[in-house]
Design a protein around this nucleic acid. Structure first.
Lengths: 202, 202, 202, 202
DNA sequence: AATGAATGAGGTTTCATTCAT
DNA sequence: AATGAATGAAACCTCATTCAT
């Protein structure tokens, strides 16, 4: 299943687009987001707007033309990530494998994505509640998909009947938190597997 | 058991201090740590040294006399928290209840402590690796106690035989991460209970 | 000869600059250096970056955009002064007068320049070795010119054969030191003349 | 002659003593001055009052009891140095050697003293005019002695007839300025010898 | 529309001096 | 009289944001 999921293909800019940006403006927006992705993934919240601009190959002014605020830029980044998770989830919904295994694999894939992005880790791991709160719509959508996957697995009897989408979210938050630590014995993949087992019906 | 554990009584300031501080200096040190606790608990890493000073009712200079750096202050805060966890763990080791239950209760108590302190949440949830790394000794001590509690429960056959101290640490990190989120359905206590169940032998 | 030397005309900003600054940026750079010149000339090393900014009519940030550090700014100031000295020296090399007299006049002119700048006095007079060390290239260039002038005068038989560029530098350092003092009888021009006589062949 | 001069023996505290200090207070004053001597000699004006106190083995408060200000302390240090120079000069006046040589040797000895003391270098080299100005009386005394030595040498015909005490002071200032520099070819002893030659009658 | 120079509030830290013990 | 802890006014520097070109 993994190979059917292409985590980096989803940009899906401005679903609520006010007006169709000019071609070059649209291209710039993409470059900014791409630069921001790289910079924030490296440095998390400490990333600087100037670095984003440099990485995007534009001036800071241009960044601010597209995103009024550093926070707004981060929010968009997080939203995109959630949308990406949603895409993966949607693909999972269409998988015909054993429902629980499909869900488990989905979590693994999405965790790998998060593991490469310090920004999402920070947000999921609790810093930046502010940001998190502004991606509500995307979270809800993801939760809906999550709920569908859960329900299916529960119907199949392979998933504990008392878990819900929030449990998945909390699990992923927890896994993201362990990603940042280099301590001895720390291994977020192991942590994730334990979490997955916890979801399984006994 | 819970009531035997008094999580807020352990300050244990500078056990390795060079010489006994003057009475008033010691009192100030406590006030600074108390102020820092409050301010950092509120604002996490964004807390400002001036605020710490104001909250403690002293001048900034005094804060810097006691802690050479903002980071040093946070480190001390985190160390204290770990020491506090250790104290609770030591008490747990002396409890005669069912070993697994004792450990589970310990986790609950310590989580409650963390729930009241944004600073420790931030550090445990992954921001501030730097800080985390400087509390190594305290972590090791805590891990040792953790290991003893685990071993006892495993001998009793009520705990999964393949878990180790790092699993506990990761669990707590994860729980701390969920504490920061107010999202619907988010409930770190529930998350913790799931984690605890995961540790139990089946 | 004196009148052919125009000591204040040489700014020669950043000959090794990467790319040509925008017109306004270049103007600001000049204003900052001008402000710095004034402020440092007044207060020496105690001058404050905020004052430099105010004097230049720009924000501190702008000062820091052009010079990453207070020290870097001072270094540039000193370098410019050395470059200015070098320009004067180069002009002197082209003078056809009696070689020793030409050199002597050069020293007088350069000393007059230094007399109007407390910053260069401080550096030459020994404070700010750090700064001094970072203007090595400029010093070497100046020394080379110095050496040429000395050699010419020595060939003419009007200069002591055992003096070298370092003796000139030391003399100028000494003269700068006397500039700062207002004591009775203190007269750096007299001091300089004595130094010049010392260089003359008998 | 050199060996008859013991540069470090002169403390001569508070010639204008208001009241006779208690024995222990007097001892403390000495210790403070001794500490200050060391610390300022090492770090010049950057030395910190806390360091002075630590070096003296007393609390900062005690330092401030004896000297109301950091500047006052430096002034006293400079005064002492001038008094020391004066003592050496007085001894020189009693030397029966060739008057010019005696004076020359005096300058060498005093320069060696200055070479070991960054504080006096700073003051003589032009930083700290403020300090310098407050040691007027001591300077005048030194100048008087200087004048006597000069007059004697001039009568002997071995010293230029047009030099005065200020020329000596300026020379010493200049030599102090060169002491701070480590540049290639810089050698304050050579500079001093040139200065001495300049004073000699031809 | 894009650029990047300019801005300046704000953050951490230092250190001469004061004052309670 | 001595101590050294406390003070807090600066100082330097950063970086999100604005604005002239």
């Amino acid at each position: 299943m993994t190979e059917t999921l292409n985590p980096d293909s989803v940009t899906e800019t401005s679903s609520e687009s006010e007006r169709p940006l000019r071609a070059d403006a649209r291209r710039n927006r993409e470059r900014i987001l791409e630069g921001a992705r790289l910079v924030f993934a490296e440095s998390g919240n400490d990333a600087q707007m100037d670095d984003v601009a440099r990485r995007a190959g534009v001036g800071v002014g241009t960044v601010y033309r597209h995103f009024p605020t550093k926070e707004a830029l981060m929010v968009e980044l997080v939203r995109q990530k959630f949308r990406l998770f949603a895409v993966t989830a949607r693909e999972a919904l269409e998988c015909e494998g054993e429902p629980f295994d499909v869900l488990a694999e989905l979590l693994r894939v999405n965790a790998e994505v998060a593991a490469r992005d310090a920004a999402i880790q920070h947000v999921l791991a609790g810093a930046g509640e502010h940001i998190w709160a502004q991606a509500q719509r995307e979270q809800e959508e993801l939760n809906a998909l999550s709920g569908a996957l859960i329900a299916r697995a529960q119907r199949a009897g392979t998933m504990r009947p008392d878990v819900g989408p929030a449990d998945i979210s909390m699990l992923m938050c927890g896994v993201c938190a362990t990603m940042a630590h280099k301590g001895p014995g720390f291994d977020w993949r192991r942590h994730l597997e334990h979490g997955i087992e916890m979801l399984r019906a006994r």
